[in-house]
């Protein structure tokens, strides 16, 4: 098997700016193959965005301590010098954010922002860069793209701005796209358009995508594989299909059960996960989920966090009692 395109090993991110150091990410390992879309899902404070930002070294360097290693397409991200890092951002990896209005520059037209970013990375003429910007706008299906290149961000609707930001991210032909809650601020009918656009770009351009979201539904629409984060760690990782069919970590099980979904009986109670996510500055010993877990035993509350357990079908879960979550049926991995 070839090396994965992205290889994250034992990534730890501790923010040291506050009164107490906060370990936002505590040992994340993740591989992403070329052309694969992986979703990181979790609640606020689970470390999903911080993990993704670490791939582009966007976490504030003076106020954070970063451990572990990240390799992307042969680059050792932790060791990149300033110039190579600037080249790496944009040409190898690009990122889109939740709120395009904050991510785009309000005083330049979109055409100017895209051509600038192309010419910053490649020695091409202004006209050439503009032609490429136009192609990008067509690629992300912005109506009347020629005219829209001369628009300012505030002149566009929310969905159009998100498309424009995707076009900007793709300006230098990156191989990896990082998407941080890209559809959370969008309306339902627009969200599905953007999700399908991401899927289409993954397929047509062979992009690898890391998609951070708290919305399992959005993750399922885009991702081949899903990694569930809780309190700074990946607690379960599986193909989207396996995860939805038979979640194995008690947190994932609880999360899927607690959703209000279609065919529920009126007035029925939702299955809930008791309590609230833990304080990252003050994590309990053992498994961070143990205080809320329906399966927890004394061993879960002792010593170190549980290790990742490899399960059938190439999936993993970080749980000592994972044999108890095996579906009672045959439970063979999906083909």
């Amino acid at each position: 098997m070839t090396d994965p395109y992205v290889r994250i090993r034992d990534l730890g991110v501790t923010f040291t700016g506050g009164a107490k150091p906060v370990r936002a990410v505590g040992g994340v390992s993740l591989d992403i193959r070329e052309g694969e879309a992986v979703a990181l899902i979790g609640e606020s404070g689970s470390g999903k965005s911080v993990t993704m930002r670490a791939i582009m070294r966007l976490n504030p360097e003076k106020r954070s301590r970063i451990e572990g290693s990240i390799h992307v397409g042969g680059h050792d991200v932790m060791k990149l010098g300033a110039r190579r890092l600037a080249r790496f951002r944009g040409a190898e990896v690009a990122m889109i954010f939740q709120e395009p209005l904050l991510a785009l520059d309000p005083v330049y037209t979109l055409g100017a922002q895209i051509t600038e970013s192309i010419r910053r990375h490649e020695p091409v003429s202004r006209a050439e860069a503009r032609a490429r910007a136009l192609q990008l706008f067509e690629r992300v299906r912005i109506p009347s793209p020629e005219r829209r290149l001369d628009s300012y961000p505030h002149e566009m609707s929310g969905g159009m701005r998100q498309r424009a930001m995707i076009a900007l991210a793709l300006a230098c032909r990156p191989k990896l796209l990082l998407a941080d809650e890209p559809t959370t601020a969008l309306d339902a009918t627009v969200q599905i358009q953007v999700l399908l656009l991401l899927r289409e770009l993954q397929r047509d351009l062979g992009l690898s995508i890391i998609f951070v979201t708290h919305d399992i539904g959005a993750a399922v629409e885009v991702a081949d594989r899903i990694a569930v984060m809780y309190a700074g760690r990946i607690v379960e990782e599986a193909s989207a299909r396996d995860l939805m069919r038979a979640p194995r970590h008690p947190y994932t099980i609880g999360l899927l059960k607690s959703r209000a979904h279609g065919a529920m009986v009126k007035g029925a109670r939702l299955d809930t996960i008791p309590g609230a996510p833990p304080d990252l500055a003050n994590l309990p010993a053992g498994c961070a989920f143990a205080p809320r877990c329906f399966l927890a035993a004394d061993s879960c509350r002792r010593d170190d966090p549980p290790p990742l357990v490899a399960l059938d079908g190439g999936r993993t879960a970080r749980c000592l009692r994972v044999e108890h979550t095996h579906p009672d049926a045959i439970g063979t991995p999906a083909h």
Binding site: A188, T189, Q191, I192, L195, L196, R199, D215, I216, G217, A218, V220, E221, S239, A240, R241, M244, H261
Partner: peptide, 12 residues
């Protein structure tokens, strides 16, 4: 427009 929740029947 609601995401499908089923990896085998994603919105097309």
């Amino acid at each position: 427009s609601m995401p499908s929740m089923d990896p085998d029947h994603r919105t097309e």
